[in-house]
Amino acid sequence: MYEAADLRKGLKIQIDGEPYIITDFSFVKPGKGQALYKCRLKNLITGTQFDRSYRSGDRFEPADLDEQEMEFLYHEGNQYCFMNTSTYEQVFMEEEVVGEAKNFLTNNLKVTVSFFQDRPMAITLPTFVDLKVVKADPGVKGDTATGATKPVTMETGYEIHVPLFIEEGETLRLDTRTGQYVSRVKQ
């Protein structure tokens, strides 16, 4: 069982026998008032989303999912292919199901795939991934203390704002929970 304080983005819970993933989460609390745990929930079977707020004292069942370690192989059109690293079995997932995770998928990246009744439903990424910058304008030499940023494109097509000193061809570490730049990776 989970408590309201356990709720966070990415957590999978069961409501009325169906698995849901929390796709967006915020903790809201007036100083003197009750805490609200605001969730956007996505039904892993139907894909429908809705918002619901929970309070301290609410309890949740974990979703009944089978989790497998898999490796991302390639994508073709809107199909993404993953392979189970112990059985070598391959599965395909549609881009819609992959969701925002597609921004961080590079060949051979190890992820966790959640299955509900043998259907792949969701991907859990490692917290940090390293991606190469494929497009960056030469930034002006900047003062890092001001926090100025510029947009760059990563090898997955993901666009992100990074500090001015980042150059094309560099590898960057990104936080998949926030989608944000963390640091440069020295090769």
């Binding site: 940090f128 890092t144 203390a145 001001t146 926090g147 500090p163 936080d175 963390v182 640091s183 440069r184």
Partner: peptide, 16 residues
Amino acid sequence: MEDLARLARKRGNLVL
């Protein structure tokens, strides 16, 4: 060291 990079980037806000 993600932690150090993150702390270094906060300098402007910490001065404020």
